[in-house]
Amino acid sequence: MIVGEQKPIEELWESIKGHQKVLVFGCNTCVAVCQQGGNKEAEILASLLRMKATQEGVEMEIQDSGIERQCEHEFFEKAEGRIQWADAVLSTACGIGVQFMAEKYAKPVYPGLNTTFLGAVEKLGHYVERCQACGQCILAATGGICPIARCAKRLLNGPCGGSTKGHCEINKDVPCAWQLIVDRLQQLNLMERYEDLAPIKNWSTDRAGGPRKLVREDVQL
C-alpha cells in the first residue's frame, strides 16, 4: 500500500486559510491503513482545522467527507455534492489522489499528507518500505527480498563492504538487504543462485524513463 504522513497543522492552515468553504476529503484505502489519510482522519483533521480557524479569528466553513479511492473516477460520484460546495479541497489522499482530483475539478486541491513510500504493515503502527516500483521485478532471483528497495545502494550483486554484522553502514537499525538475501537463499537451499551475476538492470522501466503508463486494451470499455 501507499504510506503517507500527515503534514503539520500549521502547513495545512497556510494552504487553506484564504478560502471560505473548505472540504477535508479522505481517501479510505491505502493511506487509511497507516491511519493518516482515511475518512476518519479527515474528520479529525477537519475538526482540528475548525478549532484553528476559531483561534485565528477567521470566518470559514470546514466540512469533511471521503471516498474509498481518489485515484478512480467511479468513486467520486457519491461525494459530488460536497465537492461542488467547497471553494477548496484539502485532500488526505496520497499524491496520486491529490493530482487526480485536481485534474477533475477546477478548484484548488491541496495535499494533506506527505506521500512517503510503498510499504507493508510490519506490525501495528510500523510501516516499512518494500518496493520502489522499478518496473522490472527481480525478486525471483533474490529470494523474495528486494535489493532495489532495501539496499541503500540498490546493489544487484551484493553485499558491499559496508555490511557489518548483518546491518547496513548507513544506520545500524537498517538490516543489510544482501545479508537478508543470503540468509534467505540458505534457508531455501538455493545458495547456488547467489553465484549468478545479475546483469545490468534496465532502468528505463523505472522513473528514469519518465512518467510511466500501462494500457490494457483488453479491459477498456
Binding site: K40, E43, I44, S47, R50, M51, T54
Partner: peptide
C-alpha cells in the same frame, strides 16, 4: 470516538 472529544472542544 475521537470526533466526540473534538466536537466537545470545538
Amino acid at each position: 470516538d475521537h470526533s466526540y472529544v473534538l466536537r466537545a472542544f470545538e
